[in-house]
């Protein structure tokens, strides 16, 4: 290694370590701020306390928002996994034209401005007379989750040996059973990765949900921004810390079963 090499490498390490700190900073700050005893955000906290976690009980509508968000995330991810499996099989195994275009189309909501999709859905649902906020939110959240599922399933099915499915069929399994008992278990890592990211994206979505809610159906991100406007005390950091804990759990599940490196490349 020459001197220039070493210098470049050392500088890259400095940037890379700085990047790690920069990325972890918001998470560390939120956790620290949530355990403060003071009523304002002073860091480091003058004294550690759980009072803001206890105060969450008194937040009106928080529990409803949490259950609605979990409900939407689970149901929309499940529907997306079903729709995504069928579409990904069609794109991978089908012989029709335009499969490439279909693949791009099904992943494209990832690149579209969420707010614009929200506005478009708001006007469309009004046009067709759909007034039920839960149904509107659910349909919107399937649009959010489906591309995450499609992206990982398309990538992993391209590498899957479909002769396994054919073998299962010659052994007497029907096509749906062969898919469910051979393909799905073999692609478990892709299902887990796609499903987890889809779930988290749904939990976090604000720009689409804000146009589809009504007074009684408010998702957690919407409720959090509302609290922030009305009463921005450290209990918000406590809610955020709960969400960070959720992300950590998801990550531990993912890294134990799939491995982190596969998770990000899915």
């Amino acid at each position: 290694m020459t001197g220039t090499d070493r210098l470049a490498l050392a500088l890259s390490w400095v940037v890379a370590l700085g990047c790690v700190i920069f990325l972890m900073l918001p998470i560390v700050i939120t956790l620290a701020a949530s355990f403060t005893s003071s009523a304002v955000y002073t860091l480091p906290p003058p004294e550690w306390s759980l009072r803001w976690y206890q105060s969450l009980e008194r937040r009106s509508g928080l529990w409803e928002a949490v259950t609605l968000s979990l409900n939407l995330a689970v149901v929309s991810t499940a529907i997306s996994l079903i729709l995504g499996t069928l579409a990904a099989i069609a794109v991978t195994r089908g012989s029709f034209r335009g499969r490439e275009a279909i693949a791009t189309f099904t992943v494209s909501p990832l690149m579209m401005p969420g707010l614009v999709v929200g506005v478009a859905l708001l006007q469309f649902f009004r046009e067709i007379g759909l007034r039920d906020a839960y149904v509107s939110l659910l349909l919107g959240h399937i649009v959010i989750t489906l591309p995450f599922v499609m992206r990982t399933l398309l990538a992993s099915m391209a590498a899957f040996d479909f002769s396994l499915v054919d073998a299962a069929r010659t052994l007497g399994l029907s096509y749906p059973r062969a898919i469910f008992q051979v393909l799905v278990p073999n692609l478990a890592p892709a299902y887990l990765t796609g499903g987890l990211f889809a779930f988290l994206a749904s939990m976090d979505n604000y720009p689409i949900s804000i146009f589809l809610t009504d007074a009684r159906n408010k998702t957690l991100p919407i409720k959090m921004l509302q609290y922030l406007e009305e009463q921005p005390d450290p209990s918000l950091a406590a809610i955020s810390s709960g969400l960070i804990l959720l992300a950590c759990i998801v990550l531990v599940i993912g890294s134990r079963t799939v491995g982190l490196n596969r998770m990000i490349q899915g």
Binding site: P26, I27, D204, L225, L236, L260
Partner: peptide
């Protein structure tokens, strides 16, 4: 490698609302 992967995936899994809120504290 694990350090870098966690530093990428954990912030990606934590929502935008949480992170934007943390920056307002900072």
């Amino acid at each position: 490698l694990s350090v870098f992967l966690v530093a990428m995936v954990l912030p990606m899994s934590v929502g935008v609302v949480v992170k934007a809120f943390a920056w307002t504290i900072l």
